[in-house]
């Protein structure tokens, strides 16, 4: 019951932006992909999800033993992957309840809808709101988090789940991770914040498209704090690896 990235490399305009990345994620556990801005964290998320423009990579993606490398995004989603976008889209005219139930395709008990909104810091009145300019970026992010939770995916990729949300406490993020894990989901959190990475069970440090360290979040965060906070290794992974 695992999601495996096997030797993934991706070029853009002749430059290697993901360099031979191999990662393993487990169901029921949370994982952090940690690193500074611009090192390729979001690219890894988009490659896993198979978004348009991120499928021309080398290497394989294996979900529960099945090679899903050639599958498009919707097929991957139907097999249990989903993505929380760093900046969720707006949907003019679409109500929150329609969005969460995918146009009433998902049958979700009203109590569960309300409880999930509460978990992300919103109340039931949001269900009738439209996902347009009337909602702030933070509100849309919370709705997107609720959507991911309600999908009960095998693996949820959360790209900077706390960005753009005012006053989202570490407790709230912890509760969301716990809820996903207790539903049996594996969680992959993309973040540049040590505090967020410390809430997970395992961390991978990424620099210049490469995984430079993996292990206990505390240990990886310590390394990140001492090395990456002040260095400029964004395009010099070998220096980063050497410390």
């Amino acid at each position: 019951m695992a999601l495996v990235l096997d030797s993934i490399s991706l070029k853009r305009n002749g430059t290697l932006i993901i360099n031979n990345v191999t990662l393993r994620f487990e169901r029921g556990r949370s994982h952090a992909i940690l690193g500074n801005n611009g090192v390729g964290k979001t690219t890894i998320a988009n490659v896993i999800m198979g978004l348009e423009g991120y499928r021309d990579h080398e290497g394989k993606i294996i979900l529960d033993g099945e090679d899903i490398t050639s599958l498009p995004v919707d097929e991957r989603a139907r097999r249990g992957l989903t993505l929380l976008w760093q900046e969720p889209a707006r949907f003019q005219g679409l109500k929150v309840i329609e969005y969460l139930t995918l146009g009433r395709r998902l049958k979700i008990e009203p109590k569960l809808l309300e409880a999930t909104l509460k978990l992300v810091g919103l109340n039931a009145s949001y269900l009738e709101r439209e996902i347009d300019e009337s909602l702030s970026g933070g509100e849309r992010k919370r709705i997107e988090l609720a959507s991911v939770i309600l999908l009960k995916p095998k693996f949820a990729i959360l790209d900077e789940p706390d960005s753009g949300i005012d006053l989202m406490s570490m407790d709230m993020i912890k509760n969301i991770l716990q809820r996903l894990k207790s539903d049996g989901s594996g969680v992959i959190v993309i973040t540049h914040r040590e505090e967020v990475a410390l809430l997970t069970d395992k961390a991978f440090l990424v620099c210049a498209g490469m995984v430079v360290k993996e292990g206990e979040p505390k240990e990886v965060c310590e390394y990140y704090k001492n090395l990456c906070d002040w260095c400029d290794h964004v395009n010099k992974p070998e220096e980063a690896r050497m410390g």
């Binding site: 978004l51 995004v73 989903t82 976008w85 995918l102 146009g103």
Partner: peptide, 9 residues
């Protein structure tokens, strides 16, 4: 892509 990442065709 947002909706397709939730399983819609």
């Amino acid at each position: 892509q947002t909706l397709m990442a939730k399983g819609l065709s």
